[in-house]
Amino acid sequence: MGIEGSMKLPDAPATAAPERGAAQRSYYRHSLAVRLLHWINVVALCVLLMSGLQIFNAHPALNWGRSSYTGAPAFFELAHGFPSWITLPGGHWLAMGRRWHLFFAWIFVINGLTYVIYSIASRHLARDLAPTRTDWRSIGRSIVDHVRLRHPTGEAARRYNVLQKLTYLFVIFGLLPFVILMGWALSPRLDTVVPGWVDVVGGRQSARTLHFIAAWALVAFVLVHVFEVLISGVINNLRSMITGRYVVESEHADRTR
């Protein structure tokens, strides 16, 4: 599966797609494992965000420091919390929000660990996500291309571009572990593992604030991710994340579509 899943294998099966003409070839882009883990992650993150906002609504204010009552006022407050259409469950129900959140937190962590182990073992990480020397040199051009909403075509579309690689790496090894760690910081029991460790980020209420900010940073990532999916061939992208098959046009294909 790991070998099949490689994006860059030169002998990746190339099949003609007759309905699109001979200029298009499809190849196997995402392994079954990556596809499954991706969609489980989508479900888990949606539940975690919405149940997280339910939990936030029980005390819709953010503080900085070791407690909520340090003498300094909250620096962010929502009078009525988030609307019920974005919380899980809808309407105020903290106990049920916690059940959803603390169950799907486990799904999310186990899924993420499986992904990391799989990516290292199958060399998905080294082959598809680690930037190459050429990548680093093309970073300026890649930024310009992104701003102009131009996307690689032909053979170049078979690889992630450098900004894409760096963003995925930042999310997978930075943002996601951080949001988990800040969630753990909210646990009075886990705070006893090394008493005072939460002071590294300024205290327990700072950790709650950072947990919240990191969650919205993930939302920002997802918005950009979905935007890029939409403008770089939504059907092709969706198909590749569902069936694994991704269509690339050959170098000389007409790109006016």
């Binding site: 936030f56 029980a58 005390h59 503080n63 407690s67 909520s68 009075p188 709650r208």
Partner: peptide, 11 residues
């Protein structure tokens, strides 16, 4: 530190 289930805390 007293951690309330609602999310606030007090020392």
């Amino acid at each position: 530190r007293h951690d309330c289930v609602e999310g606030w805390s007090a020392i």
